[in-house]
Design a binder for these strands. Sequence first.
DNA 1: TTTTTATGTGCAATCGTTTCCGAAAAATTA
DNA 2: TAATTTTTCGGAAACGATTGCACATAAAAA
Lengths: 337, 337
Amino acid sequence: MAEITIKYLAQKLNLAPSTVSRALNDSHEISDATKMKVLALAEELNFQPNPYARSLREQKSKTIGVIIPERINNFFSQVIDGMESVTRAYGYHLLVYNSNEDTEQEKNILSLLIGGRVDAIVMSISRFDQKSDHIDKLKKRNTPVVFFDRISTNFPTTKFITNDYEVGYQGTVHLIEKGCKKILFLMLSNENSNGIERLRGFKDALKKKNITFEANWVIECSHSDEKNIALLESIFYKLDRPDGVLASVEKLALATYRALSRTHIKIPEQVRVVSFSNMKIADLLHPPLTTISQPAYEIGEECAKLLIKKLTKKNQPDLEDKIVTIPSVFTERESSK
Amino acid sequence: MAEITIKYLAQKLNLAPSTVSRALNDSHEISDATKMKVLALAEELNFQPNPYARSLREQKSKTIGVIIPERINNFFSQVIDGMESVTRAYGYHLLVYNSNEDTEQEKNILSLLIGGRVDAIVMSISRFDQKSDHIDKLKKRNTPVVFFDRISTNFPTTKFITNDYEVGYQGTVHLIEKGCKKILFLMLSNENSNGIERLRGFKDALKKKNITFEANWVIECSHSDEKNIALLESIFYKLDRPDGVLASVEKLALATYRALSRTHIKIPEQVRVVSFSNMKIADLLHPPLTTISQPAYEIGEECAKLLIKKLTKKNQPDLEDKIVTIPSVFTERESSK
DNA sequence: TTTTTATGTGCAATCGTTTCCGAAAAATTA
DNA sequence: TAATTTTTCGGAAACGATTGCACATAAAAA
C-alpha cells in the first residue's frame, strides 16, 4: 500500500537517502559493500523509483509524444510498432494521440504536450496548411520534433519520408505502359506534403509519356468514405470514363473498388488501379491490388533512433534540417494487369 | 527557454506562489480581481503547469496504461480510438504498449507501469496461462485494472468482452445450415479466454445439430502466418477435406484464404468460411468474408469510462468483479453462401 | 469603540528524487 | 609520525506544484 521510497530504504538500512540513490545509480563514490546491501533490499522489496519525482528533478520524462492523423491504418500502426521497438529498448515511453485528420485537435494535443510532458515529439500532420502557427510555436520551445510521411516542409528539423515523387512517377508509368490513357489521381486533401510530391511524379510521368495532363484528373477527396464513393461513382458513370486510377492513399483505392463494384465496372479490364497502401492483404482483395507500400516500420525505427540519440547523448546539436528518404516498394498485382 | 513556473508568475504579479496556484485552480478563497490578473498573465505567457510536479504532489499521473498483444490489428486500433475519445475529454493520457503476443514482454511492460507511472491499466492479455503470476501481482497494488477481449478470468475486476459463446454458436449453426458437415475451428492458441468461449459455442452448435464433434477439427495455430498457411494447406490437401471453417481470429481467416487459394479450392463452393474479424474491408475480399465483428470502439469507450469514473470521483468502491458483455454483430457475405 | 467574522493572501511543508558541498575515515605519501 | 590525498558517506537544497495553517485587513455586529 504505502509506496516504497528511497527514504524508506535508507531508513531500513541506516543510510542517508543520498547514499541509497547513489548506490542505485551505481555511482563510483559508493563502496561495493553498501551497493550490495542497497541493491539486495531494493530487489527484495521490488523497489521502483517514482518516475515523476525523477522527471521533476531531472527535467526529463523519458517519454516521447506521437501524433498521427489516423489510428485505424496499417501504415501508422506499423510506424508506431517500429518506434516502440527502439524506445522500449532505451526505457522510453510512447504517448500516442490521434488527431483524427483535424487541425483543431492537433493543436489541442500539441498544447498538451508542450507543457513538458514529453521530451520529444514525432508527428505526421493532419493538414498541410499555410497557417500552421501551432506547429511554428514548437520552434520556440527546445523540444525536439521530428516529422514523418506528412511533413511540415518549412519547419527546420529532420523529416522522414519515402521517395514519393519517384514512386508516384513509377506507378503512373506502369499504368500508362499497361495501356491507360486517362488516369485519375486521387488525393485526400490537396494540401498534404507527400500528396503533392506524388502528384508531381504523376504529372511528370504523363509528360514523359506524352500524355497531356488535364486538371480534372486530380480528384480531391474528403475524409468521408461514403462521399468519396459517391463522387467516384458519378465520375465513372460518365461515358468517357477514366481507364486508370492512382490512389495516393489506401482508403481511396478501397473507395474506388467499392465505386467500381457498384457501377459494375471491371478491374483491371476497364479500369486499372494502383495505390499507395500498407495493407497486408492487398493480395486477397478482388482483384489483388497493385501497391506502392511504404517502409513503415523502418520509418518508425529511424524516427525513434534519431530522437533517442538526441535525448540520451550529451551535447547533441539540434536536429539537422533535412529530409531523409526511405524508398517504397512497388508490387504489381492483378488490379493493374 | 526558461520554463514558466508558478513562482515566476507570482513574482511578476507580486503575489505568493500559493495564491497563484489557487487562482489557477479557481479556488473560492481568491478574489475575482486577482483571479483575473493571474489568468490573464497565464494566458499571455501560455503557462502550462508542470505535469510532473503536479503528479508528484497529487500522487496521480492522469495517465492510463494500455497493453495490447498486437498493434497492426483493426480491432485493437478501434478499441484504443474508443478509449482515447473519452480519456482526452477528461484530460487523461494514454500510454500504449504492444506485448507482441509474448508473456515475457507483457511482464516487463507491467513492471514498468507498476512503478506509479500510470493511475490505471487496461489490458488484453497475450496468453491465457495458468501461471500468470505477473498479473496476480497487480492485485497487491491498488492500481485499478480492467481487462477486455482476452481477459484473465480469475482476476477480480471488471472485464469487457463480447458474447463470444453465442456468436460462436451462431456462426457454427450458420455454416451447418449452409450444408457444412465437417467444420474446422481455427484458434490462435488454445489458451485465450475468448477462444475457449467461442470453441464452446462451436461445440454446442454441433451437438445441437447432431454432428459429432471430432477433436482434430480444432486447429491450434501459431503466430506465424507462413506456418499457419502451410498447416492449413496440408489439411486441405487431403481427400476428406473439411467443408467449413470458423476462424476465431481474423488472421486465421486470411491464412485460410491464402491456403485455399494455393490449393485451388473454391470459397464458398468447396469450403465455406466465417471469421471473427473487425476488418473494414471484409466486403472487398475475394470472396467477401462473412464476419462476426466486435464492438471495438464501444469496448474502448466503456473501459475508459469505467476507469475515469473510478479515478476522478471520490470514495469509489473497488472495480466490481464482473464480466460485461457487449454483443458482436454477424454479417453474412459470399464466403459462406 | 471594541469584538467577532469573513475574506484574501502568504509562509512553509510536502511529494520522492538527484546532486552540490562538505566532512569524517581510511589510505597514501612525505 | 605528520601531512596529504582518496574514498565513502550524510546534510541539505533543489525540481514545481499543492495545501494546511496563520495572519493580516476589512466588514459586520455588539
